[in-house]
């Protein structure tokens, strides 16, 4: 069957080979084959001449439908259905973020109201404390060469004798002893009394005078 239909479509009985003829003749007669071949050829020609066309109004209707459908599609769903790549979304988010940051940075930020904490500081009226201390002075031993004799002064003349003794202490030492001393305990006490007062550069000065 398969071969015969293919042969019918392409070859007339005369164009068949010996083998093909034998194959064909085993199914249909020569005249039948010729008639079938003729029907097919004639049918093909007839089909080509057929000029069947649908009603022209159909085309018009379809065009209207097509326009209507695509117009409504663009306005609503098609915009929502457009696929957007991920990088585009990220880029747009980045741009929005940077714009937001830029405009926020340019705005004047409200200055925070800082209340100055006023510390209560107790200040002494006198920042210098005078302490009186009795510092025992070293005893000065006088060296004598000889025992002093009781000399009765003469009435007539009083003459000045040369010094008979000298101090063993260096006078410069004595001078140094007279300098100002700082009493550390007094300073500490003053600081404790100041109650949180910051360390001051003008530490209370304690002068000690030796009398």
């Amino acid at each position: 069957m398969k071969n015969i239909q293919e042969l019918l479509e392409n070859k007339s009985f005369e164009a068949l080979t010996e083998q093909e003829r034998n194959s064909v003749l085993s199914v249909v007669s020569m005249s039948e084959y010729k008639e079938m071949y003729a029907v097919l050829q004639q049918s093909k020609t007839a089909f080509n001449q057929v000029n069947a066309r649908p009603n022209p109004l159909i085309k018009q209707n379809l065009n209207n439908q097509f326009r209507e459908k695509n117009r409504s599609g663009i306005s609503l769903l098609s915009w929502l259905m457009i696929p957007i790549p991920l990088w585009m979304i990220l880029l747009s988010l980045g741009i929005l973020g940077s714009l937001f940051y830029y405009f926020n940075a340019n705005q004047k930020t409200p200055v925070p109201i800082i209340q100055k904490e006023i510390e209560q500081v107790f200040v002494y009226k006198t920042d210098t404390i005078y302490l009186e201390k009795i510092i025992p002075t070293p005893k000065i031993k006088k060296k004598t060469r000889s025992e002093t004799k009781k000399v009765l002064p003469k009435k007539e003349t009083l003459r000045t004798n040369p010094p008979i003794a000298e101090s063993s202490i260096d006078p410069s030492f004595l001078m140094e002893q007279a300098l100002t001393y700082y009493d550390s305990s007094a300073i500490q006490r003053a600081q404790e009394q100041s109650l949180g007062q910051k360390a001051r550069t003008d530490i209370p000065k304690i002068e000690v005078t030796v009398r």
Partner: peptide, 13 residues
């Protein structure tokens, strides 16, 4: 399909 085609051709003939 081929069988139907052959059959149709015979009937038309």
């Amino acid at each position: 399909v081929k069988s139907r085609l052959f059959s149709a051709t015979q009937k038309l003939r």
